[in-house]
Structure formats: structure tokens, C-alpha cells
Simulated assay, not measured.
Amino acid sequence: MPGQLLARGVGRALRSHDFVSVEELVPSAGLRVDVMALGPKGEVWIVECKSSRADFQSDHKWQGYLEWCDRFFWAVDSDFPTELLPDDTGLIIADAYDAEIIRMSPETKLAPARRKVMIQKFARHAAIRAQAARDPAFVSGF
């Protein structure tokens, strides 16, 4: 899947910036972010991976992600028509192996209570994924 390949490249690049990331995290009912990253000082970034113009144009939920992060980015490949993306969001050019931040997202700091919730969701999501990798038969029953 093209979006998953972009997410892999984004995760690798974010790691080089000392961020750790998870894929497909649900910040609230009805929303599922492609990549959520957690920085060394507790920063929360959300990255939405778009593989085509149609993929971007069909995404009507992305503005709902803004209240769940300090910075919001789009990750697209080098052929994507970036003029479609809002100027007040971050831009990452990615492929399956790496990514580069082209435009830094403006920062809107999360409230402390919301940050605590997101860090807990991140930790639980990461732990469930790790447990599923160790014991897939057990975790898949939940």
C-alpha cells in the first residue's frame, strides 16, 4: 500500500530527529491518524500520508486531527501536487525508505491535560503493537 510505504519512510526520518512513532493511532472516536510521533520533550506530531490527489481530496477528517497534536504534517511522494496542501500545515516529502521535512508546521501547543491523554494513548498503542508482535494469537482476541 502506497500510504503505508510513505509512513515507513516518515517513521525512519522522524527517528533521526529523535522522535518515535506509531501508525494508525485513534485519538478519538471516528479519527485514525496515519502516523503519530512523540518527541524527546513530549511533543506530539501527527503526519497524514497521502498517496494521490484523490486520496487527499477524499479526506474530510484531517482538520479534526489538529486539536490532538502540537504540529500537523502531510507526507506525500515527490510526484504529489503539493499546491493542493494548505500552506499553514507542515510538508514532508517521503518514500518507503526516508523522508525530509520541507515545511515545518506551525506549533499549537496542546493543553497539559490533552498532552497527558495523548502520551497515554501513544504508550498503550505502542505496547499493544509490541505485545501483538510477541504473541499474535493472544492479542488478536481482544
Rank of each mutant, 00 (worst) to 15 (best):
F56K: 02
A132T: 12
Q120N: 14
S28W: 02
L66T: 02
S52H: 08
R103Y: 07
P136Q: 11
V10P: 01
R53Q: 14
V139Q: 09
A133Q: 14
L25G: 00
R103L: 06
K121Q: 15
G90P: 00
S51Y: 04
L84Y: 09
E48T: 02
R103H: 07
V33Y: 00
F122L: 08
D135I: 00
W62Y: 15
L14R: 05
H125P: 03
V33E: 06
D70C: 05
M118G: 02
C69F: 05
F19A: 04
W45D: 02
I102M: 12
A133M: 12
E107S: 12
L84G: 06
C49R: 04
A133W: 10
D77P: 04
G64F: 04
R32W: 05
V26W: 06
L38V: 13
D87R: 13
E100Q: 15
P112V: 09
E23M: 09
V22N: 01
A113R: 12
I93Y: 01
R124C: 05
F19D: 03
G9V: 07
G90D: 06
I92L: 09
M36R: 04
W68E: 01
V139C: 02
R115C: 05
Y97M: 09
A126Y: 11
A130Q: 14
R32I: 10
E67F: 00
G42K: 09
P86S: 09
W45S: 00
D98P: 00
H125G: 02
E83M: 02
R114K: 15
Q4E: 15
L38H: 11
A99Q: 07
W74Q: 03
R114I: 12
G141R: 15
D98S: 15
R124N: 10
S78R: 14
A37Y: 01
L6W: 01
P40L: 11
S105Q: 05
G39H: 07
V20H: 07
G11R: 12
D18N: 13
A13K: 01
K61Y: 11
G42E: 10
L110A: 06
F72Y: 15
A99D: 08
P81F: 10
P81D: 09
K121N: 11
I93Q: 06
E23Q: 14
K50H: 08
T82Y: 01
V10D: 02
Q131V: 13
V33M: 13
E100H: 08
G42Y: 10
G90Q: 03
D95C: 11
M1Y: 06
